[in-house]
Design a protein around this nucleic acid. Structure first.
Length: 846
RNA sequence: GCGGAUGUGUCUAAGUUGGAAUAGAUCUCGCCUUAAAAGCGGGUGCAGUAGUGCCUCGUGGGUUCAAGUCCCACCAUCCGUACCA
């Protein structure tokens, strides 16, 4: 439709305009480095593709899933076309945001309602955001209730109304029909009510549909002089019409129970209709005259013949059973979901393959005659469907009798195209095939493992595509039930923009440089809002790419926020990204200044980090936590930087480089590919195998050791800051006495049995080795028991701990630019020394 | 009204089966530099001349040896939806 509008505005052919845009977008996508398999490119305006839109339509027509009906439909004046219910949410056109009107037209519909139950249940089997599932559940709007026949007086037909509250059936005191219900029109004809009805009808029709169903709008109605009969009591019940009853839902008429429904209550009060109580609350008694609002809670039935004294929730079932037995009602399930109106009065779309013959009526185009090609000899006038201007197209012959016939000129909703394109990507359509795609290929690839799209399609594309998947499965085209197994709804790119808090509005494009609101003169504040042309706050990706490069743009977007939460565009953010990209280049391309021949513990450390980071990054990537993955890479980058300046061991350093290049490659493909070549690697990086981590490096012992090193260095740093010494003479690390290790192992064993401190202490004091240290132990035990989980179960022996510190001595020395000595507790006479504990050496700084 | 989500030191975000609150930005100090930028290092909840103590994940309770995480109630914000019989 934008193509057609642009064509009208600019006088270009829509096809030309579409192709132009496709090549522009393709270029941009290639520039930003998106790796698509372009061999699978499909275009919905290619007759090889839309042929199968028509195929699906005809298959549905033959199965009775496509039908033509005259009804009230949503009409958008600016788009000059009909819209489906899903496309007119909140009474506004999904494309142009214009208020939609109601028009009475003959249109093609698809019976999506036939799949309502399955569409609802299928939601339990997909891994989608709860929010989207809720939106679909609400949209489908299943409700269980009862259909009840109310015979019309003086006629032999009856109205089958739907109610969820058959327990209140005895409380019905009036009926309400939608004003546009066709029966109503006949009933008032030639009666004294006709005039009143006509003016009321016109008044209601003038209201926009969504205004009419606004809760604040006044509930208006009139009596139309007609009655029906209560199916059980046989009482005469007056029929009203009112604006609050919607023709499309249920029967287009309701039974009104003013005592137990607030809306009915208000209506009854207004028009002086009797109120009959049929449910009494447990705690008190209602009085019809004194009621100020309806009683909608649970209670016990009254005035309900044999159902009196029954709990109302039980009565729902009992009354329905009785109606069923008498043949005047039955349990029913109703859905809010309406059938999908797919006719569009526009040129640029897929023609509906139907021919109207005077003799044979509505005739589908035979499958062998597909595709029905969209003609090019059309005139774009400002009004009406351009297709109607192509005589060649309209005039045809009837496939059945050969007589001159006329083609349908409505085209299909473009959502039809997007309802099955994911199958087409598996097996791009071929003109010569008579099916849209081959079953074994689609079954092999499908269903889609991970789908990404905006939340705005929650009850549009995402419901249509599910319907199509089930429908085409039933045509035998493939075997699975749901199109998209995992769904991620990505956020939008926002930008801060002038906002008036008083008027609750953002500055429009023309006002965006003003200081204050043009309506109330309040000063604008800056607030984040989605990018949009009307606000004039859009950023052209090309500008960003030109200024910072593709990789910086990608890095910024991926690191800026999680995919779900959207991103605030900012200059600082993109600046950081661009700095990082530059830094990583020089880090990897400039060779290290110091290269060691011997392997040291420093190399073990960076190797440990490397493996840990591969593991964490892989996890994050798999969960699509791209931001976390990037965070890990940034950390690894700074570790490598430190490692490089301290001096490297060639083999390990090369592994680190390879790892970070590969990890970063999906984020910043261009620069990493470049670096790959510069450092002399053969073949493309994009074809290199992904990095694996070595589980043997990530043992509990190693985790413990490197944590021990980090926390010890943290402690040293802490003390250093505290004593405000500029340069350090010496650091002594004192490893705890052997008996403390013995204590730890005894203690942790005991805590498996009991957490009682007294009991634990008395057990410990039976140990002769520990007994002399009783006072110290009781303090330690107290501290440990307060938060046992904080203490690792794993520990090294005193000798292992000491030799580990000897190993990493050089790292600490380098970091603090001083000498480090490792001692045992009994080797030094300092009262600070005896604070040493297993896994926590005492630190003395000189 | 109904439904859903969110709330984390200044900001943006991580935080898995409960087990020592992480990153990045910002700001700031230092190094480097003739200088700036870039880069590197320290600090960025409070207190402290010794590895510690205390506070803090919207508020208030609860469960637990242990709660950002589990349970209950409330508040705020955002989104969806609305006479659906």
């Amino acid at each position: 439709m934008p193509a057609e509008n642009a064509a009208i505005d600019k006088g270009i052919n829509p096809e030309e305009w579409t192709d132009l845009n496709i090549s522009f977008m393709k270029n941009q996508q290639k520039r930003i480095g998106l790796s698509y398999d372009w061999d699978r490119e499909i275009c919905s305006h290619d007759s090889r593709y839309y042929k199968f839109d028509q195929y699906f339509f005809i298959m549905m027509y033959e199965k009775g899933l496509a039908y033509r009906q005259e009804s009230y439909v949503n009409w958008c004046n600016t788009c000059s076309t009909v819209l489906a219910n899903e496309q007119a949410q909140g009474g506004k056109c999904w494309r142009c945001n214009n208020e939609v009107e109601q028009k009475f037209l003959t249109q093609w519909f698809l019976k999506i309602k036939n799949y309502a139950e399955e569409l609802l249940n299928g939601l339990d089997y997909v891994d989608w955001p709860e929010k989207v599932k809720m939106m679909q559940r609400n949209w489908i709007g299943r409700s269980e209730g009862t259909t009840i026949k109310f015979p019309i007086i003086d006629e032999n037909r009856s109205i089958d109304i739907f109610t969820t509250r058959p327990d209140t059936l005895y409380g019905v005191t009036f009926m309400v029909f939608a004003p546009e219900h066709p029966w109503v029109h006949d009933w008032v004809k030639g009666t004294k009510y006709e005039k009143k009805y006509d003016s009321f009808y016109n008044e209601v029709m003038k209201q926009k549909k969504f205004e009419r169903t606004d809760i604040d709008i006044e509930k208006k109605g009139i009596f139309i002089g007609k009655y029906c009969i209560h199916p059980l009591t046989k009482e005469k019940i007056p029929i009203y019409i009112s604006n609050f009853v919607i023709y499309e839902y249920g029967a287009g008429a309701i039974m009104a129970v003013p005592a137990h429904d607030q809306r009915d209550f208000e209506f009854a009060k207004k028009y002086d209709i009797p109120i009959r109580i049929v449910i009494q609350p447990h705690e008190y008694e209602l009085n019809a005259e004194k009621m100020s609002r309806a009683f909608e809670s649970q209670g016990i039935l009254a005035n309900s013949e044999e159902f009196n004294d029954m709990e109302n929730l039980n009565a729902i079932k009992s009354i329905t059973e009785k109606l069923d037995k008498l043949g005047i009602g039955h349990a029913t399930i109703n859905y809010k979901l309406r059938d999908w109106g797919i006719s569009r009065q526009r040129y640029w779309g897929c023609p509906i393959p139907i021919i109207y013959c005077e003799k044979c009526g509505t005739v589908p185009v035979p499958l062998t005659d597909l595709p029905v090609i969209l003609p090019k000899d059309v005139k774009f006038t400002k009004s009406g469907n351009p297709l109607e201007t192509s005589e060649n197209f309209i005039t045809t012959t009837c496939p059945k009798c050969g007589a001159v016939a006329r083609r349908e000129t409505d085209t299909m909703d473009t959502f039809i195209d997007s309802s099955w394109y994911f199958f087409a990507f598996c097996d791009p359509p071929h003109h010569e095939l008579d099916i849209p795609y081959r079953k074994e290929i689609v079954n092999y690839w499908g269903n889609v493992d991970q789908y990404i799209g905006g939340i705005e399609h929650a009850v549009l594309h995402l419901i249509y595509a599910r319907f199509f998947t089930k429908m085409s499965r039933d045509l035998g085209l493939h075997d699975f039930d749901e199109p998209f197994q995992r769904l991620l709804t990505q956020g939008m790119i926002n930008k801060s923009h002038p906002y008036c808090s008083k008027c609750d509005r953002f500055a429009m494009k023309a006002e965006m440089n003003d200081d204050s609101c043009k309506f109330c003169k309040t000063k604008y504040i800056m607030r984040s809002v989605k990018m949009s042309k009307s606000y004039g706050n859009t950023i052209n990706p090309d500008d960003i790419i030109n200024k910072y490069g593709t990789d910086s743009a990608r890095f910024f977007v991926l690191f800026g926020a999680s995919p779900e939460s959207g991103l605030d565009f900012s200059e600082e953010g993109i600046g950081f990204a661009s700095k990082f990209i530059r830094n990583i280049f020089s880090l990897l391309v400039d060779p290290p200044k110091i290269i060691r021949k011997n392997k040291t513990v420093r190399d073990d450390l960076i190797n440990y980090y490397m493996n840990k980071i591969i593991k964490d990054t892989n996890n994050s990537m798999n969960n699509l936590d791209i931001r976390d993955a990037v965070n890990n890479i940034i950390q690894f980058y700074s570790e490598i930087t430190k490692y490089k300046t301290e001096g490297v061991f060639d083999e390990i350093y090369n592994q680190c480089m390879r790892t970070i290049i590969i990890l970063l490659h999906p984020i910043a493909p261009h620069i990493t590919e470049e670096i790959w070549e510069i450092i002399g690697k053969k073949k493309y990086l994009s074809l290199a195998s992904w990095v694996e981590y070595d589980d043997k490096v990530l043992t509990e012992e190693n985790n413990f050791k490197w944590n021990l090193m980090n926390s010890t260095m943290g402690d040293i740093n802490n003390i250093k800051n505290l004593i405000k010494k500029d340069s350090l003479e010496k650091i002594s690390l004192i490893i705890a006495d052997k008996w403390k290790y013995h204590l730890y192992s005894r203690l942790f064993k005991l805590t498996e049995k009991t957490m009682n401190q007294g009991e634990i202490m008395s057990q410990l004091m039976k140990d002769n080795e520990l007994k002399p240290h009783g006072k110290f132990i009781s303090q330690i035990v107290n501290r440990i028991l307060k938060n046992i989980g904080k203490f690792s179960n794993f520990s090294l022996s005193p000798d292992d701990e000491s030799s580990f510190f000897i190993d990493i001595k050089s790292i600490i020395e380098k970091k603090f630019n001083t000498t480090v000595e490792i001692l045992f507790e009994d080797e030094i006479n300092d009262k600070k020394a005896n604070k040493a504990l297993p896994g926590k050496p005492s630190i003395i700084i000189f």
